[in-house]
Design a binder for these strands. Structure first.
Lengths: 201, 201
DNA sequence: GCATTCAGGATTGTTAACAATTTCGTTTGA
DNA sequence: TCAAACGAAATTGTTAACAATCCTGAATGC
């Protein structure tokens, strides 16, 4: 129970890089995103870039308009965001419960590594890295528990973070995740769900 | 408040055709899907077909493996499906409420047309058409209430239907949707949500 | 007989060129 | 002065060719 595909899938690495930059607020809302520019930057042709942009469009980060390309999507309304938060929580609680019953030693190792990476990013106070490590940690138990629902979860989470990133108090983020991971290690479901609920807001 | 983009977006029409066939069970689980074959069929090159396949991969209908292309995804487990159902319900109830307060006469016209189309498909007892019209009707109020969340909703709904389509008792389907639409026309939120909940299972 | 190796054909991945469309500044006309 | 028409530049959409990878089945060695 442990695989982290490092393969390139339909331009996924390009996709991850762009997503990270979007989450860290590198592009303004409504700012158009040019295929050729990105292709030059990544040293590829426009094909793989288009794949990545299409992925992000499906995730809801970008929005597409025929013959005009993609631009950064407008943020969710408060109402929409709260719906998304509840959906994500429902899904992630299911995954966390499943994960807790199945996780083995190597999973604990992986989680420890991911938590360590998050702490490190918090210490460096680097917003884009914190956002990425935060997602990567949660993503681990989701992917392990239900690969089927991983992309659904990712879409919800990314859209959630985009609205307004609560990612400013780095100490708090570090503590929250430390609590979740500790509860997982103790296989204490109730505690884990409690801390998860406190974190996913 | 009424727009139905008929534009081709990243090969969306190809995408819709393939999705319909997948939902109607034309392809077996795990069956590989060949780009060139589809390109020949649609009279295009492989580019637009790849776009469509990537979309469906993001939706969760297809699953992708590097250098091997896509194949029909395996069905959700019962547990996963019930999580998806609850997420979809949560989202769609939010949209239905919003739609009910904002819908105008032209929206009612559109809904009537879509309901009529569904009834017609039920009478012809054509499974692929029933599935498509069913989705199209629900999709209308979701898209009107929250364009942001339309693709999220679509992914959940498609994945839900794939598991096992309850779409066998055509009379019941027709009645259920007639009830929902009637409640909408009367702007009776409680009744509309009640019938929706009975339908989305 | 059985596993291994090695073509070749089939399929996906990438690229560059071309077609279609949009964008934007300039000209034109009233 | 302003708005419409025009055209060049920029951008997206599509295509066919090529590269890289995977699959299949026959040949090979044990």
């Amino acid at each position: 129970m442990s695989n982290l595909s490092s393969r390139i899938e339909f331009g996924e690495n390009i996709c991850d890089v762009i997503r990270r930059e979007l989450l860290s607020g590198k592009f303004a809302f409504d700012e158009p995103i040019r295929e050729q520019k990105l292709a030059n930057r990544f040293g590829t042709s426009r094909g793989p870039v288009r794949d990545a942009l299409l992925r992000l469009t499906q995730e809801g980060v970008l929005v597409y308009e025929a013959n005009k390309g993609v631009r950064v999507n407008s943020p969710l309304s408060d109402e929409e965001r709260s719906v998304v938060v509840e959906m994500r929580l429902h899904l992630e609680k299911f995954c966390l419960e499943k994960f807790l019953t199945r996780a083995d030693a190597s999973d604990f190792d992986q989680i420890s590594i991911l938590l360590e990476r998050l702490s490190s990013a918090c210490n460096r106070a680097s917003l884009p890295e914190v956002a990425e490590c935060d997602l990567a940690l949660h993503r681990y138990w989701v992917a392990q528990a239900s690969p089927h629902l991983e992309s659904t979860w990712l879409g919800l989470s990314v859209r959630m973070i985009m609205k307004y990133s609560r990612l400013t108090n780095y100490d708090e983020i570090e503590r929250e995740h430390s609590n979740i991971v500790q509860a997982i290690m103790e296989r204490d479901l109730k505690k884990a769900l409690f801390f998860l609920e406190a974190n996913v807001i």
